[in-house]
Design a protein around this nucleic acid. Structure first.
Lengths: 214, 214
DNA sequence: AGACTACTGTTACCGTAAGTAACATGTAAG
DNA sequence: CTTACATGTTACTTACGGTAACAGTAGTCT
């Protein structure tokens, strides 16, 4: 019947879609965020128009690809955030999870941070704010939810939690980006340094002799 | 003589270069980070090859353009960081300076954060770490210097300061990016929330009733 | 069987952008 | 006047995102 037929077709299309995404994944892993639609189609053994039929445009493909990785990473982060342990330990575990992920697959991580590659004519309007980094935003919102849900922040807790969520995620990201490029220390050292920062060691530290206060 | 001649020519070339950069600035301000070389050349009243003779390639032009704004912003930030006031006040002033800058010219800020727009074939190599955001990196290093110079952090202070510098800058950037897109609160509120985060209010806050600790 | 539909796939093309080669022009030095 | 050089141009190549138009193949309806 129609329904079974439609289901079959849909299943087939979904399977194809998954195959295409896996091919795209391989190409992105190989070529970085600049991977071209032609290269992806070739890797999948087909030609461009099929990609466009499945994903609409490059942004669509990239969004679908990003969603896979983002979901996976967010799942791991949430697990670390929800583990049965003290707050500080959880924060450190979350930081470590993120850093381990970007360490394991830097190209993918790079791709996730710069998905809005901005085609020549596609994004004329320059809608400020729509250019954002989907992964960072999603992580920030997720963390904000957890913070608001678990931490007692008094009045204005929602707004404070969102600021902190995005701020902490940005801290993690920038520090991780820098660390990945220079590798100045072990991962654990970075994790401890960032946790110390979040735990207010900057305000607790004394001024250095010789200068005015900073 | 040769020298005066060379000087004259060089001065003329420098002046021209500055004019071209100003034209590029106007175009970027108008069209965002996707501004084309043709558009910039047209705005400057010339044609493409001249741009290429002056800046090598698009990356060169963008780097030169970014340097101008980055220098200006870093100057303002350093002034806020060096003002005669308490540490907390200085931190808040620095955050506010940055946020005011991105609020005033979001396109420029967008451009500075995504300069490696990645032309079709230009950036094949995908040198991990070389894709970074020059402005963020420079701000991070600058802040790290100031922290190490002024704050007594005990052993390993250099490494800790660098981690913190990049982390704090990333926090500022991500929170600012999110805030610019959603405008959920006044600038001063954002500044206070971020300063509170840096001052360890997250670790000081109690658990919310009902759940395990976060 | 034969026409109709729907899906998958192709080739060939358009528009635009980065970057370059080759040619033209003005101007000071010998 | 000729040489050297910087400045400027037009016209081209290459590559990419995206699309139109066409071809094959399977199931469905009459």
């Amino acid at each position: 019947m129609d329904t079974t037929q439609r289901t079959d077709q849909q299943r087939s299309a979904d399977r194809r879609r998954r195959e295409l995404l896996e091919a795209a994944d391989r190409v992105v892993l190989r070529d970085g965020p600049g991977a071209s639609m032609n290269a992806i189609a070739a890797e999948a053994g087909i030609t461009k128009p099929i990609l466009y039929r499945h994903f609409g445009d490059k942004g669509g493909l990239y969004a679908a690809l990003a969603k896979r990785h983002t979901d996976a990473l967010l799942g791991a982060l949430r697990a670390a955030l929800d583990a049965p342990a003290e707050r500080r330990e959880r924060v450190e575990a979350t930081l470590d999870t993120y850093l381990a992920a970007i360490e394991a697959r830097p190209q993918v991580y790079r791709f996730l941070m710069h998905p809005s590659e901005g085609g020549p004519q596609g994004d004329q309007g320059f809608d400020v704010g729509a250019y954002s980094f989907p992964l960072l935003r999603r992580m920030g919102e997720e963390l904000a939810d957890v913070i608001e849900e678990r931490v007692d922040l008094g009045p204005n807790s929602q707004q404070l939690a969102r600021v902190w969520g995005h701020g902490i995620v940005g801290m993690m990201h920038a520090a991780g980006d820098w660390w990945l490029g220079e590798r100045p220390c072990a991962r654990a050292d970075l994790v401890h340094a960032l946790a110390d920062l979040l735990w207010g060691r900057l305000s607790a530290a004394g001024d250095k002799a010789g200068g005015p206060s900073f």
